[in-house]
């Protein structure tokens, strides 16, 4: 038998992500989101998705602004120091986008339950939070069958597809990560199908040199896509930092729904290599890599 090859092109994501799917999106804050895949979802006009994020930012805001979502599950969506997420706010405040706001721990524990193939996991959850009251489909007050202690059950989350970005993979789908992993690994365990974009696809010999860096095994991966700078404008720690300059530009475009359409035209609806040119090409990439390298300890 030949050695399996899971390497696909960005345009192959439509073989896995279908209209109406529940898609868990990796990364956290302004770091490590699978942005090349996000842009390809928009280019491919995939719609009616339910996005699942723990701590999202521009990944979620872009998908909302481009009209790909019918529902959102999140614990946090913000552009952090750049401000509140503009499309996220508009969609909820003005257009009534349906959403499930779940505490961060409950999303993570829910994904872990999905990965363990159990319907819920108990923990000393957010007693007294209104979110428990508002979303009984995700939280239940339960009693410990052994001690009688009051606990909260977090419902299992089983995404149709998980998408994450990582540093490298071999063609069989062993995935190496070197920075912030967030909930990427839990999403990959819980989901039915998984797509990973990586900075580079390498021979398996390179993976075997550093097994401690492999965070997801090949049997939890369905497709690997080589996408250098594929997390841009978010970071891929510790290799490049988030692109503050592009995010400021994004915030300008996203200030109104009208100008945001132009962002999608100018940056998203073109091949990925043209996107990388548009954001400043090699020069910008080298700045972001250099910033990630030149850190100072005290």
């Amino acid at each position: 038998m030949p050695i399996e090859n899971k390497v696909g092109k960005l345009s192959d994501i439509t073989k896995i992500i279908k209209d109406g799917d529940k898609v868990a999106i990796g990364g956290s804050w302004l770091g490590g989101h699978p942005m090349a895949i996000i842009r390809e979802i928009i280019r491919s006009k995939i719609k009616d998705l339910t996005a699942i994020t723990v701590v999202g930012s521009i990944d979620i805001d872009l998908l909302i602004g481009a009209g790909c979502l019918k529902r959102l599950m999140f614990s946090f969506v913000s552009m952090e120091a750049f401000g509140l997420a503009p499309n996220f706010r508009r969609a909820i405040e003005k257009e009534g986008l349906p959403y499930d706001e779940i505490t961060g721990l409950a999303v993570i524990i829910g994904l872990e339950a999905g990965g363990r193939n159990v319907p819920f996991l108990p923990y000393r959850g957010p007693f007294g939070s209104d979110l428990v009251k508002y979303r009984p489909e995700f939280y239940k007050n339960i009693k410990c069958p052994f001690t009688g202690e009051e606990l909260i059950a977090a419902a299992a989350i089983v995404p149709d597809v998980a998408i994450i970005h990582a540093v490298r993979a071999d063609k069989t789908g062993n995935i190496q990560m070197e920075g912030t992993t967030g909930t990427d690994i839990e999403m990959m365990r819980a989901a039915k199908k998984r797509i990973v974009s990586v900075e580079e696809v390498v021979p398996s010999e390179e993976i075997w040199k550093h097994p401690e860096k492999t965070k997801v095994p090949k049997f939890q991966v369905d497709m690997v896509i080589e996408a250098p700078l594929g997390a841009h404008p978010t970071s891929c720690a510790p290799h490049y930092v988030f692109d503050a300059w592009h995010i400021m530009k994004y915030m300008e475009y996203a200030a109104s729904a009208e100008t945001f359409k132009k962002y999608v035209q100018d940056y998203v609806m073109k091949p990925e290599w043209e996107y990388l040119e548009a954001i400043g090409g090699m020069r910008q990439a080298s700045i972001l890599r250099r910033l990630a390298r030149e850190v100072k300890f005290l």
Binding site: T181, G182, E186, P238, L291, V295
Partner: peptide, 17 residues
């Protein structure tokens, strides 16, 4: 650079879980 600084100077790397 907070993320890359924390990452490069860490004693251990954890997932959120």
């Amino acid at each position: 650079r907070a993320e890359s600084s924390a990452t490069r100077g860490s004693a251990l790397m954890w997932t959120m879980l």
